[in-house]
Design a protein around this nucleic acid. Structure first.
Lengths: 239, 239
DNA sequence: TCTTCTATAAATCTCGAGAAAAATCCTTGA
DNA sequence: TCAAGGATTTTTCTCGAGATTTATAGAAGA
């Protein structure tokens, strides 16, 4: 019997286990700043919030170590990974090193399926950008998801699993910082125009132009974060 | 009171907890092929071998997911990450992308301390290479450690934590494959000469030559593994 | 003989409690 | 008032047992 599968948003992977469920919610909360950078993550407190046992929550925290969103120190528990302007600069430049290479490969190797997926992702992103601006946090969240989907679709034709893996981690890291840059808008940006240009160059298979636009695009966010006051990067040492 | 600290081999971090101890031994066993690629890792069996509780062993396995040496599937337990010739090609090329960049930065920024550390690491590696050849697995193990230490010392002056982090993971991965290439010696190599040339170019701050030698050096191992019969990459589907 | 269904066995996941370590607070003395 | 030491509290780490899910083996039917 054929089931009608409802169209899923990508990334909405159903958790098959309590550990995965707690992991996903914890990851989301860390990226969104519910748990501040540098904050101590006490198992005994968190197990109530996420409604799982202590051992289960420990496993979820261990999974977050893979994403480098949590650091574990033996006999001293877990902490949210600290943030700093130097770290974001490092993240950005490493991400560009990997992502531009993956984009080069993708433009060279991508077939019709890849093109179709890029067109679709760009369309979805454009729609989300229209609904943006009215300070709707739900719309912003959806935009984040589609922005990631667009960037990942662009490099999806790269045959390098490892580059895509590392890119995924770095993108996730940068989300924490991008969230901060929302608080200040010192650099006026027409993000949609940037995406449009990147999209055009990619479909035209213009490697040089596409990587150049991508680099500018990513560095612009770095500049925005650089202008933030240092207090944003203080981080909690205790509690 | 001053204590006399015995000179430690790098990487010999004392485990502060049972989880870390099991993690280190498991990692070593996976890299050395005690647990074959693709093999299922049953908690109930392994907890006896490593003399820890089931929950503790689960946490150790979760830590290995960070190194991409183990893959976890919800409700289906853990497996040793499979290997393939395509995977090693990907590992090698991604590693070169990162490691050459880190080497460039290191040669540009490295100071006296970096130089001294490189000289020391090269000296230690040379000594280990002299003792090699008599099929002594203990000497081979020591050579592995010092080879890694030399490569990490070369890029230690790179300011990018993220590049070094990813390089560390990829190097660890490649150890599994390098171990396979020991079984066949189709390509005669004077590894010491390659290291000597890399060392000379690095201290001379000849970026172009150093990165070029490094690339050749790493690709040569890829070629050696490529000549292995396909049976090496079969991997266990069950058990 | 092959497929399908069911019953059994095995493995994973989950939780709470006890042991060990770290952090905190409080007393004591100068 | 401050520092040092010790006792208490908090937190982390560890284990074994029960519940749920998956895998295996066997029986029934085509």
């Amino acid at each position: 019997m054929n089931e009608v599968v409802p169209p899923k948003t990508p990334e909405a992977v159903e958790p098959k286990t309590l550990v995965e469920g707690a992991y996903q919610r914890l990851r989301r909360d860390i990226i969104e700043g519910v748990h501040a950078p540098g904050e101590k993550l006490r198992v005994e407190h968190l197990k109530d919030r996420y409604e799982v046992g202590a051992g289960t929550l420990r496993e979820a925290l261990l999974l977050l170590v893979t994403d480098a969103l949590v650091v574990a120190q033996g006999q001293r528990g877990f902490r949210v990974s600290p943030i700093s302007i130097e770290d974001f600069e490092d993240i950005t430049r490493t991400r560009l090193l990997l992502e531009t290479e993956a984009l080069r490969q993708s433009l060279q190797l991508g077939g019709e399926d890849w093109e179709a997926a890029v067109v679709a992702a760009f369309h979805r992103l454009s729609r989300a950008e229209q609904k943006l601006g009215d300070n709707d946090s739900l719309a912003a969240e959806e935009w984040e998801r589609r922005n990631r989907a667009f960037h990942e679709a662009l490099i999806a034709a790269s045959p390098s699993r490892w580059i895509r893996h590392f890119q995924h981690i770095l993108y996730q890291q940068s989300e924490r910082y991008r969230r901060l840059s929302l608080f200040s808008h010192p650099i006026p940006r027409d993000i949609h125009a940037e995406h449009q240009a990147l999209f055009n160059a990619s479909l035209a298979r213009d490697t040089t132009r596409a990587t150049s636009i991508l680099t500018e695009h990513v560095l612009r966010t770095l500049d925005a974060v650089k202008l933030l006051p240092a207090e944003f990067f203080a981080g909690k040492q205790k509690s």
